[in-house]
């Protein structure tokens, strides 16, 4: 899910930037530093939308750098266990398939794909029901439920399932073309 939240960060600025456009320098550095990063607590920082407040700067001993506490609003994407969302299938193999929902990767193991869907290898590997009516392949859109998340320093990785009511393929690219 996407959220709009306020975060705070201490920004260090070199004295050469002190002047009329100090604030702009601070903001552009902030964008460069935090947009695209990921933390386990707040998820992926997608975009900064505004600056709430820049606090008083403090000169650091010995270097002349000044630290400013900056409060900013941003759009973040944070997946939760138990959340249901839509995703695009990016890779299919006999272990299951990978899907992407925005910046996050979700793996759905073949144990969590309905039992009536069989893996079919070939140049377009896919999972298909025995009557061929439902097919999951690359670029399919699926609705899935996140059942686990793994967080490391720079990435969040999810495990999902489509073995539940109202989950599964929303559209398959083969049918549309």
């Amino acid at each position: 899910m996407f959220f709009h939240i306020v975060l705070e960060r201490n920004m260090q600025l070199h004295p050469r930037h002190f002047g009329r456009d100090l604030r702009e320098k601070l903001v552009s550095k902030l964008m460069k530093d935090v947009e695209g990063t990921c933390s386990g607590r707040h998820g992926f920082v997608v975009a900064i939308t505004g600056i709430e407040n820049v606090g008083k700067g403090l000169i650091r001993d010995g270097t002349g750098f000044v630290t400013f506490p900056v409060k900013y609003q941003c759009v973040v994407f944070r997946p939760f266990k138990g959340e249901i969302l839509e995703a695009v299938v990016t890779m299919v193999n006999k272990m299951g398939f990978f899907a992407e929902a925005g910046p996050v990767q979700i793996f759905v193991s073949n144990h969590l794909i309905p039992d009536d869907m069989e893996f079919q290898s070939g140049d377009m590997p896919n999972y298909t029901t025995s009557d061929g009516s439902v097919k999951i392949q690359k670029e399919s859109e699926v609705r899935l439920k996140i059942i686990g998340t793994r967080v490391d320093a720079t990435e969040i990785f999810c495990i999902g399932t489509i073995k539940d009511d109202f989950l599964g393929v929303i559209s398959d690219p083969g049918a549309a073309s």
Binding site: F2, E35, G36, T37, C38, F44, V45, V46, A47, V75, F77, V88, E100, A101, G102, P103
Partner: peptide, 10 residues
């Protein structure tokens, strides 16, 4: 960032 690009597409 890549995060921005992927989110926008999504």
């Amino acid at each position: 960032s890549q995060v921005f690009e992927k989110s926008l597409q999504y």
